[in-house]
Amino acid sequence: MSGTTESGARHVPVMLDRVVALLAPALRHEGAVLVDGTLGLGGHTEAVLERIPTSRVIGIDRDTHALALAAERLAPYGDRFTGVHAVYDELPSVLADQGLAAADAVLFDLGVSSMQLDEPGRGFAYAVDAPLDMRMDDTTGATAADVLNTYTAAELTRVLREYGEERFASRIAGEIVRRRGSAPWTTSGPLVELLYDVIPAPARRSGGHPAKRTFQALRMEVNDELGVLRRAIPAAVRSLAVGGRVVVEAYHSLEDRLVKRVFTAATRLDVPPDLPFVPEGMEPTHRLLTRGAERASEAEIAENPRAASVRLRAVERVRLSQESDPVSPGRKP
């Protein structure tokens, strides 16, 4: 994500030039539509609107604060930009609401945005004592404090182990439940103290900040990030017009594996391996645009450390399926 937050921090979109290069071939016709499913502060969208004058962008974000900042930033582009308050798995209904049967391109830059990390009151970061919120849409839903105060030890262990890949999940969960018997969880400071107490010193020295995995797990649980992604990636692949492209930047191994699985299914040739020819209509509907997952360069990582864990994948629709798929780019139903 890029732009300037209320705290004044400047943010740089990850792999910006590569993302725009992958999207550009699908957007070089008049009225081409990109759906930026994770708009954030609008860094990727701004670059697309600036570099590809034939394009327009529908920007989706569940975070009302990000939407307001992005709308202000992108105002110079007029009606070429439309902001929508929604979760990105609602992409099909967003397209329908805009009178569109298909998208020419879809972009997902997954995970927590720089803006959310850098605004202490949101509770995503562990560097300061702040309310344990962690909701990307802070107008609805349960907070991280709600999770800590209501989940059983077994449920907390599952969350920490599955989403945080935390080796000491069971020990941490048990201590969370024990301590909430004295006082409910409300802010991040006491949770960070607990993690320093519970995680052994050798693991703290070699495994990065002891709160990193727990905070990541809580954030993913609060926002149902994997559930949303499981619905959103297949929906995006299906929503493409012929020649359309989906580009995804993932920062967590579970996210990347899910994206890889969907992209592999869409590009697989589903015929017996000994068949001498491919029957008409049996060709894959999509083709891979990246060989495996692409990574940020060492130079970019040095300039923007948040690029270190990115995995970028992309596919292109090459033909319609026999199902009821979109018929042409940007065509209204």
Rank of each mutant, 00 (worst) to 15 (best):
V35Q: 05
M115K: 05
A183G: 07
F277Q: 13
R317W: 06
F81G: 09
L39E: 04
S297E: 05
L194R: 10
G121P: 00
E294L: 15
R205S: 12
R167S: 11
R291A: 13
G227K: 11
E155N: 07
P272G: 13
S328R: 12
T290Q: 07
L218F: 07
M115Q: 06
S206I: 10
R10H: 14
D36T: 11
A203R: 05
A293L: 01
R179E: 03
T157D: 15
L229W: 11
Y126R: 01
V159L: 13
V87G: 15
T187Q: 11
R62G: 06
R204L: 05
R219T: 07
G207Q: 09
L27V: 14
R56K: 08
D97A: 15
S253Y: 13
L95V: 06
L258S: 13
G123C: 02
G123L: 02
S321N: 01
G43V: 04
G208D: 09
E294P: 00
A211H: 03
L110H: 07
A201H: 05
L254G: 14
F81S: 09
I52G: 00
I301D: 00
E280M: 08
V35P: 03
M220R: 01
R171F: 14
A154I: 05
R213S: 09
A75S: 07
T5S: 15
Q322D: 10
P210W: 08
A26R: 10
A32F: 13
A26P: 12
P13G: 07
D118L: 04
F215M: 10
R80D: 03
P92L: 11
W185P: 05
A71R: 15
L22A: 13
R313F: 05
A302C: 00
R80E: 04
I233C: 01
T38N: 09
I52T: 00
R268F: 14
D325C: 07
R73Y: 02
V247E: 11
S113Y: 01
V248M: 09
P234W: 12
P234G: 09
I176R: 04
G59W: 04
E6A: 14
V57R: 00
G208A: 05
L254I: 12
P76D: 05
R62I: 00
V48C: 01
R287N: 08
N223M: 10
P272K: 15
D109H: 04
D104A: 10
E193M: 07
A302S: 07
A70S: 10
E6W: 12
E303A: 14
L117R: 09
L194D: 05
A203D: 09
G174Q: 10
L288I: 11
S239I: 02
L49H: 00
E316F: 08
L132Y: 07
V242D: 01
A145S: 04
K332D: 12
L275N: 08
R171E: 07
L312A: 05
E6D: 15
A142C: 02
R230M: 04
P279G: 14
K260E: 12
A9D: 14
D118V: 04
E249L: 15
T45S: 14
D325Y: 06
G189Q: 13
E316W: 08
D118I: 01
E300W: 00
L191M: 08
S239H: 00
A125H: 08
H44S: 08
R313L: 06
L34G: 14
E50S: 12
